[in-house]
Nucleic acid binder design. Structure first.
Lengths: 223, 223
DNA sequence: AAATATTTGTACGTATGTATA
DNA sequence: TTATACATACGTACAAATATT
């Protein structure tokens, strides 16, 4: 374990135990330097990491203070469907999208791909995906018959930004039929918009039966 | 803008534009030192930030490489209900919990608080909360009549860890009645377990009508 | 298999800038 | 105004890991 990590852990432990409560002014950097017998840069590095973790705030001239907890952000884990036991992708449609769909996501010409993710022999998620072919021209020549568009895109599009929206919906007739459930079943709907350099790459909506899928998010001693 | 941030942004731009694709070996630190005319420590700080952001990987002797995108983690934003327009908390129950509830969450003696979060005059969420009074003794003397237990706890319990679970459920009779909806309506259920120094602080289950609530998560140029 | 060279990782001490109590 | 404490950056040193010879 490195020295800056040890310093970081020591301070974090005192915060998490409640010994140093929110608002408490932790020792000055020069005091921590004395306590740990190291250079100020090393203490500073540890404190910077604590700031990044949201545990403390630093104010010039005033010192560093234990932050007030904010449970309003957590790291959401979105599992890769393709890694599930008994995974299979079934494509049900692949066509050029209608003009109104371009309006819907405000993009250029689109490819629409629809299909079902199966896990353990049962349908797990219904997917409707739009791919902007002006951003990803190679997508026009793919058929997404055996490979789900999600994993195909991961291999063909470099780094991007994404926004997710999660909500609960009742399955409509088409969704219920595709997933083999009664109409109106509570489902988790995950929508994702992906951009690259400001241009839309893809939009996807996945619908999961509520009793077969959940999401988890961690906050705190993450990583 | 600081120098290390400028270096970081310059590299990030080349990655996001696709100029440097996943797997590409970015220039060695000494080359970046030459390019930006700075000390190696400054380049190293910029690269460390890019590692933390998941954009690159560094390997001794080999160099630093553009990471392969992983959309499997995103920062989930959990809004503070009390800040919504026309917010009101209505407590419906407050009592010592039954022994079987202690088993359910594996904790010490519990206080159970139930109530409804209203926003804009309409019920937004049904809450069932368990508080471990051995971890938070002061909770035994609070009545949670006017203040929701969530915000009360934020002010009385220092830093903690939390895990969230999100799923879609159909409203049962009691939930439907409390929220003024038909039975079976699709709802988003958010569960949260909170610990402090390894001990459970609180468990809460919030049920939102699917058409009145959603969650968003960001991935990429966050912060 | 072993030695070597290269690159990242950590830490130091110093210097200077900046916000502020 | 001034002293203080954090913020950024520099240059050096050595350690650790690992391709390459």
């Amino acid at each position: 374990m490195t020295l800056d990590k040890r310093i970081r852990d020591a301070i974090e432990a005192r915060i998490r135990s409640g010994e140093w409560r929110p608002g408490y002014r932790i020792p000055f950097e020069h005091e921590l330097v004395a306590e740990f017998g190291c250079a100020r840069a090393t203490v500073s590095k540890a404190l910077s990491a604590l700031v990044a973790a949201g545990l403390i705030e630093r104010r010039r001239k005033a010192g560093s203070f234990v932050a007030h907890p904010q449970v309003h952000a957590a790291l959401l884990d979105i599992p890769d469907l393709a890694r599930l036991e008994g995974y299979r992708w079934e494509r049900t449609a692949c066509a050029t999208a209608a003009p109104e769909e371009m309006v819907e996501v405000q993009s250029g010409p689109l490819l629409r791909v629809e299909g079902i993710h199966h896990a353990d022999g049962a349908p797990l998620a219904l997917e409707r995906r739009l791919i902007d072919v002006s951003t990803v021209p190679e997508a026009a020549t793919a058929d997404f018959e055996t490979e789900a568009p999600g994993s195909w895109l991961l291999g063909h599009v470099p780094w991007s930004d994404a926004r997710h929206r999660i909500r609960a919906i009742a399955a409509d007739r088409a969704q219920a039929t595709a997933l083999g459930m009664p109409i109106g079943v509570a489902c988790l709907q995950l929508e994702r918009w992906t951009w690259r350099a400001g241009a839309l790459v893809t939009y996807v909506r996945q619908v999961f039966p509520g009793d077969r899928y959940d999401l988890t998010a961690e906050f705190g001693s993450r990583r």
